[in-house]
Design a protein around this nucleic acid. Structure first.
Length: 870
DNA sequence: GCAAGGTC
């Protein structure tokens, strides 16, 4: 039996393998650098089995929009709410996936050992899918564990369960929503604000469904601080010296905001100077030991240890995978009854720092203080083995976790609190003292402070003269609930620092929050995100369907989006105000339209809609909306309109051929015509177009056709024939063969002339355009140039780079009549069919046997068309 | 060029 185990990360794989194999696992390299293979023998279902333990590195796949939605300029952002999504293996994970596929093929059982949390379940589902695709007979099982110790791992092994599909689906729903919401709002915000504010050109104004509510929270604090008006207040303190001890009695009234009133009372107190003890009470007081440790609490303690919340979790994660502590992501603060805490306390006995305390706990009996929360998945964070060998920050975090663990198992600290109240001039003052009788858990938990504060002996009803009274003026201070470094750190994190193009202006953050508030769009409200979290739990419980949750959430955010889009001007004004800039431009803003509305064709490479745009220099450009992934585009001469895509050509860039025409009236009539052109890279397209537009042709066309033909109409034939019939072009230029000036199709002089040195066309002469190779890289075989003609005519000379075999240059147009026309690809053309309908009705044409469509009408050169082979 | 969540 061969068993494949997959953990969430290499570290975990290594340690789980070590536990299952008693340290005997062999470590081998696999296709993925970071994900090693650990091989060992162990028992499975009562039999000795071969084990391979390997890992992934978190998620392998990521949701993405299909290529046709990737262009910001031709996808309306709200289309992303409904756009299809694809889940792709990310680039970094290709080898990780390969590793799983390879292993799956030689194993019959898959055990998933990803972390036992939400994301872990989803990662487990990814692992399962990849492995099952490679080997559909795999038996898939899931190991459940909260810690990587011998017992836990073996217990998990003995109690394998199925993967929890519902949890995986909940994560999937979150992923989908995060992407849809993030992408649509990010595009709307970025495009609009870039248009409005010159300082934001090229900047990304990102929006995240988690990030934005946090921004809202920060902005709220920020405002409270900004709007805070300090207020003066006055208070009175009474001091009394007794037995060398100075005791400060504080005013029960605490403070007054009226100086006159406070001063009047102070005067009376100073004048009287006599105090009477009106209340004297001494009662036992205890300081409770802490609750068992949960994640949030651990994060809160980070600062105390000089770490950030992120750092402390990273370290805890490491301590977990190395088996020092239990799983650090838990919302539980109750130790389950089934968990035997004794061995863990015993392990701490060996630690010189708190070994004695651990021993004391064992003697007194383990008595955990329990909270009320449980996530029913993981116990509170606790140490698993002794960790006195650790160093650095790991040691610090481990020590905290161990001390916390021992603290919550020990006993509360005990003491006596004495309260003494005085009356002076009818005002009440009080002081408190503390006498600690048993430090209890504080012995092992120095992170809590509870200090003795002694109070001298006073008697009830006793009267004495106060030493002095102080009149203190003070001011209220801003509600700095978040410290300044916190605030800046948070802002920085929110307005993402990872990209140079990202804005980091606090005023923009405030502006965004204010703008949505102004439109009553509750995006900055945490309730929106917590509503999603609740829905995710419902998916996990089976109370709600994944798709229903996604639909409902998408609809809610779509409403918010619509409202913002409909009120963009107001939205911009609020942000302008916050940023302190008068709006610097009033350029009209238009959101991208649905490409389907404007598309003239589908991109043959990526199937995105292709749209026609006029660029500032007046050129008309047909470009793929799949930009920038797909860069298929090309320029049409003024007014050109693509009317149909015929087929893809076979050039290396995957260019394709279009049939297009000119709008009658929108261009000079001589341009009317129809031809096929490759809309691949710019150069190739330009060549195509130049070949086709010739004034001489046009003039002849017009004479023949008797006036400008109406677009895709009767004028077409002319286009096809222009090469042959062109005899008297006025073009002249250098070069030329045999004295006659030869022009390239782009109307520039063609250069004579090079002889092919090798290949199938060895010894044949050809012309190239004088622009060659920069702009126009068409060329023309010399023996095909019509005497005295403009040279490279409308015939579609093959681009130089095509590698079509030219073994048989084939007969030119005259061969058509012979009925033995050869396609350039060397095959005999099928001859001859007559067009049954359409504008070319009645015309005979040839087809290449390789192609299913019309190659060329019989009156023109077949060969050139075939340079665009299928 | 979009998010957030894993992880190296």
């Amino acid at each position: 039996m061969r068993i494949l185990c997959v953990a969430e990360k290499n570290d975990a794989a290594k340690n789980i393998a070590a536990q299952l194999s008693n340290g005997s696992a062999r470590n081998e390299a696999g296709p993925s650098k970071y994900n090693r293979l650990y091989k060992f023998y162990s028992m499975f279902e009562g039999h000795q089995a071969d084990f391979v333990m390997t890992s992934v590195s978190g998620h392998m796949q990521n949701y993405e929009f299909p290529i046709q939605y990737k262009s910001w300029s031709s996808t309306p952002p709200d289309a992303l709410f409904d756009a299809p999504l694809v889940k792709n293996v990310t680039k970094d994970m290709v080898k990780v996936k390969q590793n799983l596929e390879q292993q799956s093929r030689t194993h019959s059982v898959l055990i998933i050992w990803t972390d036992c949390d939400r994301e872990g379940e989803n990662i487990g589902a990814e692992v399962r899918d990849v492995c099952l695709r490679a080997n559909r007979n795999l038996r898939v099982l899931r190991a459940r564990f909260s810690e990587i110790t011998q017992t836990a791992v073996r217990r998990a092994m003995a109690n394998l369960v199925p993967l929890n599909v519902l949890i995986a689906e909940a994560v999937d729903a979150r992923q989908e929503l995060d992407l849809r919401i993030g992408a649509s709002f990010t595009r709307l915000q970025s495009l609009f604000l870039q248009n409005r504010f010159p300082t934001l050109v090229d900047r990304l104004v990102s929006f995240g469904s988690c990030q934005f509510p946090t921004l809202g929270f920060v902005v709220e604090r920020w405002r409270a601080i900004a709007e805070f008006q300090p207020e003066k207040f006055w208070k009175i303190e009474v001091h009394h010296n007794r037995g060398g001890m100075n005791t400060i009695f504080t005013w029960s009234c605490v403070r007054l905001f009226s100086e006159r009133a406070a001063a009047a009372i102070f005067e009376e107190i100073e004048e009287s100077g006599r105090a009477k003890v009106t209340h004297l009470e001494s009662k036992p007081k205890s300081k409770w030991r802490p609750f068992p440790l949960e994640t949030v609490e651990l994060e809160k303690k980070a600062r105390m240890l000089g770490l950030t919340a992120k750092d402390i979790m990273k370290i805890a994660e490491k301590l977990y995978t190395t088996g020092f502590i239990s799983y650090p992501r838990t919302e539980t603060n109750i130790f389950p009854k089934s968990l035997d805490l004794k061995p863990m306390v015993e392990a701490q006995q060996r630690d010189p720092r708190f070994g004695a305390f651990a021993t004391e706990i064992l003697q007194n009996g383990i008595d955990p203080r329990n909270g009320r929360k449980t996530d029913e998945a993981h116990p509170p964070i606790h140490p698993l083995k002794e960790g006195s060998g650790l160093v650095g920050a790991e040691a610090k975090v481990y020590e905290f976790i161990a001390r916390r663990f021992l603290a919550c198992l020990s006993r509360d600290a005990q003491g006596f609190e004495t309260t003494c109240k005085l009356e002076i001039a009818e005002e009440e003052f009080s002081a408190k003292g503390l006498l600690i009788s048993d430090r209890g858990y504080l012995e092992v938990y120095p992170y809590d402070k509870w200090s003795d504060k002694t109070l001298p002996q006073y008697q009830f009803n006793e009267e004495f003269t106060i030493t002095n009274a102080e009149f203190i003026e003070s001011t209220t201070t801003a509600p700095l609930l978040l410290s300044e470094p916190d605030l800046i750190g948070l802002m920085d994190k929110i307005l993402k620092t990872h990209s140079r193009k990202t804005i980091r202006t606090v005023s923009l953050g405030i502006g965004l929050v204010s703008a949505y508030e102004d439109l009553s769009i509750p995006l900055a409200n945490h309730l929106l995100r917590s509503g999603l979290e609740r829905d995710l739990v419902k998916i996990e419980n089976g109370e709600k369907q994944r798709d229903a949750v996604v639909r409902a959430q998408v609809n809610a955010y779509r409403e918010a989006y619509k409202k913002a889009e409909e009120n963009l001007n107001r939205f911009g004004a609020v942000i302008a105000q916050s940023m302190g800039v008068a709006r610097q431009n009033d350029r009209p803003f238009e959101l991208p339209r649905n490409p389907a509305d404007d598309a003239v064709a589908r991109c043959p490479r990526c199937q995105s809609p292709m749209v026609v745009k006029t660029i500032p220099n007046g050129s008309v450009c047909v470009s793929c909306t799949g930009y920038p992934e797909c860069r298929t585009s090309g320029f049409l001469p003024n007014g050109g309109r693509m009317i149909a895509r015929l087929r893809a050509c076979n050039c290396s860039a995957g260019f394709y051929v279009v049939r297009w025409s000119f709008e009658p009236g929108s261009v000079p009539s001589h341009m009317t015509g129809e031809y096929e052109g490759c809309l691949g890279c710019d150069e190739t397209l330009k060549e195509v177009i130049r070949i086709s537009i010739r004034e001489g042709d046009a003039a002849r066309n017009n004479r023949r056709g008797g006036g400008p033909p109406p677009g895709p109409g009767p004028g077409r034939g002319g286009g096809n024939q222009r090469g042959k019939k062109r005899k008297s072009d006025h073009d002249s230029g250098p070069g030329g063969s045999g004295g006659a000036a030869v022009n390239c199709g782009c109307n520039k002089p063609a250069k004579k002339l090079t002889t092919r040195k090798d290949g199938p066309n060895k010894d044949r002469d050809f012309y190239v355009c004088s622009d060659f190779p920069k702009v126009c890289n068409y060329f023309q075989w010399a023996d095909e140039v019509q005497p005295g003609s403009g040279g490279a005519d409308g015939s579609r000379n093959p681009p130089k780079k095509t590698n079509n075999p030219r073994n048989n240059p084939g007969p030119s147009s005259s061969a058509a009549a012979a009925g033995n026309v050869q396609c350039e690809c060397g095959k005999n053309a099928l001859s001859l069919t007559v067009r049954k309908d359409g504008p070319n009705q009645g015309r005979p044409f040839f087809k290449c046997p390789d192609s299913g469509f019309i190659r060329k009408y019989s009156g023109s050169i077949l060969k050139a068309i075939c340079s665009f082979k299928i």
